[in-house]
Write a protein that binds this DNA or RNA. Structure first.
Length: 532
DNA sequence: CATCCTTTGAAGATC
DNA sequence: GATCTTCAAAGGATG
């Protein structure tokens, strides 16, 4: 006989022979404490019978709170091993109504149900535990109270999803952001934290991904049969699909309301997250990059049509991807979406002092100045060339660049940027693969690409076009030399035609000090969107 | 008082 | 397989 079946059999026998005369007696006898609401009965095994469905509470209440005066309930469920408690929802009682092994560890039982579990003995060397369900208050008299208690039942049984990396980071950063920026609204705080999260390097984020993985493993251990499907659709009645599936007339109102909450006018709002994109695809169609074969990941250098083209448009906006993502622009940058935006006339272009440029250079990823370089991943080993278009601006720029890097840069009239380059671009690069140096074969690399128009650029914009490697360090000597060459160009750069557009203060200060720039990041950060 | 808002990531649902 | 949807946290805002 299966242990579970045997256990059930014993439980049934015990219940029939020695169950307290009333459930209330049992509750008082065993618990000796104030009763608690009864959690819902989950019985995947088909026993006891499923309660009648209750639309208010998901179908649990009808046999939990019988009318008119609900008795005090007791439910003793034998638990064995580490199986989830709700899988063993078999009525049973303890012979003496006492804890036989009060210190037995309870494993595999949801945290929110452990309070109901007590060990009662062993069966075939397997710990047997009773699932003691405290009784609900006996003085329930109003439907309102019953509804409230029913919600408590659900909350008690509800096994939540394990937090992901961002959720852990959010939880950690929330009090800090509240203290630093003196804001309380979770929406605004989350926006700030979201920006900070995106500004973190992969290494910095790895800490939280590791924690999330640990949490996930722990969650899986404690709830082996749980999956996100358990909670799907149970949390709340969502209505978001109405905005995505049907372009209702209320959407402009919602958009205005949303912008109002963020103290940003609708004209200033822009999809800054997957959520926003998903939420309002019809209202504000996705602006497609002008280059369709751009790298999918970290496609920071993308021309967004109809973006930042009007004179009254804010010079700063929510930028989906920050340049030099490891640099901490978070405080000031994040305010672009969470704090009132200071409208400014957009200058034709903005330049920087050499001091400011050099200070930015110093903050760039050490990769750009490191003497330790590795070869990129081998196209023979890594992903094969698949969809690289020879007409790609990336390819055109690279072909010219690598044909004669020195000449290319000396004759270059336009700023050069660094951006993400995908693995499928590596085969076109004139770098001899050295498999023995491979350390990260599937991660993006970064390469100089794409010139831009000089009329609308500045030295600092050139710096903006650097996108720090985020996943691994390998970088070809060609890239490195190019980067160093660009540094030398920057060092020798004279104000020249940019001087007349110098700002009175260094933008660097505005980047690093949240208090000094409550409006936005320097306008040159929107430059990423025009790199192509 | 229930739900929304807001973020990113994971995972299930849907097409 | 790509895309969409939901839910993790959390507290003020909203209807």
């Amino acid at each position: 006989m299966d242990i579970r079946e045997e256990n059930n059999h014993i439980s049934e026998t015990m219940q029939s022979e020695e169950a307290p005369s009333t459930s209330e007696d049992a509750a008082v006898d065993i618990l000796g404490q104030t009763s608690y609401p009864l959690p819902p009965l989950l019985s995947p095994l088909g026993y006891p019978p499923q309660p009648a469905s209750d639309p208010q509470t998901g179908g649990f209440v009808s046999n939990i709170l019988p009318e008119p005066a609900p008795p005090v309930y007791q439910q003793l469920v034998p638990l064995m091993g580490s199986g989830p408690a709700h899988l063993y929802s078999q009525p049973a009682t303890d012979r003496q109504g006492q804890l036989r092994h009060p210190k037995l560890n309870v494993v595999g039982i949801p945290d929110n149900m452990r309070q109901y579990v007590r060990p009662v003995g062993e069966l075939h060397d397997v710990p047997v535990r009773d699932f003691v369900v405290p009784a609900p208050p006996s003085n329930i008299s109003t439907p309102k109270k019953r509804k409230c208690e029913a919600r408590q039942y659900e909350d008690r049984l509800y096994i939540k999803k394990p937090p992901n990396a961002f959720m852990l980071y959010l939880k950690e950063q929330r009090p800090k952001v509240m203290a630093e920026l003196n804001i309380t609204g979770s929406a605004a705080i989350n926006a700030v934290v979201g920006k900070r999260w995106r500004s973190l390097s992969k290494d910095q984020q790895a800490k939280y991904f590791d924690q999330a993985e640990t949490e996930s493993c722990r969650h899986a251990t404690e709830h082996p049969d749980w999956s996100t499907k358990e909670n799907y659709g149970k949390k709340r009645k969502r209505t978001r699909n109405r905005t995505s599936s049907t372009a209702s007339a209320s959407e402009p109102k919602q958009e205005a309301q949303q912008a109002k909450r963020l103290c940003v006018t609708p004209a200033q709002t822009q999809p800054s997250s997957s959520y926003s994109v998903v939420k309002e695809p019809l209202k504000q169609p996705q602006r497609q990059p002008t280059v369709t074969n751009l790298p999918h990941q970290q496609s920071a250098c993308v021309q967004l049509q109809n973006t930042q083209t009007t004179a009254d448009a804010p010079v700063c906006q929510v930028n989906p991807v920050l340049p030099a993502s490891h640099m901490d622009f978070s405080a000031s940058a994040s305010l672009a979406s969470s704090a009132p935006v200071q409208l400014q006339k957009q200058a034709p272009f903005v330049s920087d002092t050499n001091e400011a440029l050099l200070s930015v250079v110093e903050q760039l990823d050490p990769l750009l100045t490191s003497e330790q370089f590795q070869q990129p991943s081998s196209p023979l080993i890594g992903p094969q060339l698949s969809q690289t278009s020879l007409a790609s601006p990336v390819y055109c720029a690279l072909s010219t660049l690598y044909a004669s890097p020195d000449t290319f840069f000396k004759n270059q009239k336009e700023p050069i940027g660094f951006a993400d380059i995908q693995h499928d671009m590596w085969p076109i690069l004139p770098v001899t693969p050295q498999p023995d140096t491979l350390s990260c074969s599937n991660t993006p690399k970064y390469s100089p690409i794409s010139p831009v128009s000089l009329e609308n650029s500045s030295p600092s914009k050139l710096l903006d076009s650097f996108v720090a490697p985020t996943e691994c360090q390998p970088m070809s000597p060609v890239f490195s030399e190019t980067a160093k060459y660009m540094m030398s160009l920057l060092n020798d750069l004279e104000p020249g035609p940019f001087a007349q557009h110098l700002q009175p203060s260094s933008p660097q200060a505005g980047w690093s000090s949240p208090e000094s720039d409550q409006s936005c990041r320097p306008p040159n950060h929107s430059f990423l969107q025009t790199l192509y």
